[in-house]
Design a binder for these strands. Structure first.
Length: 271
DNA sequence: CGTCAGGTAGCCA
DNA sequence: TGGCTACCTGAC
């Protein structure tokens, strides 16, 4: 049964393909998406989003369709560079991921390309997750913390030094504790997350931005860092503190959206 | 075969 | 505050 939603400002392609989310495959113009224990399909024609295998309220939550994207984009549109990125990828939205899945995904991400990260997550789900079906397509749910007990179990994931990060996180935190971070301030929540082994500023900010609604989080990877230096500091090397201060002062409370647009823009226009 | 990616931990000044 | 390097795996 196919359902449809009309959405004013939305690009499914950019939203899924910009690097914030890993568990999807593209078949022709249709995306098969997996999140937690769900599997469903999405495709877009003009301003109509078609969907199968998922209920509307979940989709609205997942794709942040209840969010006034237009006013957020106006808010971060503060210079010619980010303006150009917004023009090019207008309609790209943050995805509101499951916090547990998001944390583990980005624990896998250090020093790995996106295809590696996807492969690690896929094997993780195949090893521990329960089977889920969409028509005759088989998917796997994302494993709950209690499933992952020892590093030996994760051998086939080939996560290398990240294996212990995954095991320790499974022992130390669960979904409801992660969701509880939402009641803290950004810096408190960030500090709590970095207590976990393998979680530094970057992974903490990814988790806070992509799953816990902290829109001021600005994940700073080396690409974004180089981009900022080139675009805003005339190529000058900048210290960590200086860069962080610039970002929060310049982009403000929705800095995370600016990161999403700049990152996608710079990744597709190599320099 | 060697080199390197790219985020974090742990050490150091 | 920030510089350096090991960490594991896979791509090149």
């Amino acid at each position: 049964m196919t359902h449809r939603l009309r959405i004013d400002l939305f690009s499914l392609k950019d939203t899924l393909e910009c690097g914030q989310f890993f568990r999807f495959t593209k078949i022709m113009n249709t995306y098969i998406v997996q999140s937690s224990d769900r599997i469903f399909s999405l495709w877009q024609k003009g301003d109509i989003l078609f969907y199968e295998g998922v209920e509307e309220p979940f989709l609205i939550h997942f794709l942040r369709l209840d969010e006034e994207l237009d006013s957020i984009l106006k808010e971060i549109d503060r210079d010619p560079i980010v303006h150009q990125a917004i023009q090019k990828y207008r309609g790209m939205r943050l995805i509101r991921q499951d916090p547990w899945e998001c944390l583990l995904s980005f624990l896998c991400s250090s020093a790995k390309s996106i295809s590696h990260i996807r492969s690690m997550i896929e094997i993780l789900c195949k090893s521990f997750g329960r089977k889920i079906f969409y028509g005759n397509i088989i998917g796997y749910g994302f494993p709950e913390p209690l499933c992952i007990k020892t590093s030996l179990q994760l051998e086939s994931v080939r996560a290398g030094f990240r294996t212990n990060y995954l095991v320790k996180a499974s022992q130390c935190i669960n979904r409801s504790q992660l969701l509880g971070l939402k009641s803290l301030s950004y810096s408190e929540a960030r500090q709590s997350l970095t207590m976990l082994s393998g979680v530094g500023k970057k992974v903490a900010d990814c988790t806070l931005l992509y799953s816990l609604d902290f829109l001021e989080a600005f994940p700073m990877d080396t690409w974004i860092r180089k981009g900022l230096q080139r675009a805003y500091f005339g190529g000058r090397w900048t210290g960590e503190k200086e860069t962080e201060n610039f970002v929060s002062n310049h982009f403000g409370p929705f800095a995370g959206y600016a990161q999403l647009y700049l990152y996608h823009y710079w990744r597709n226009h190599r320099f």
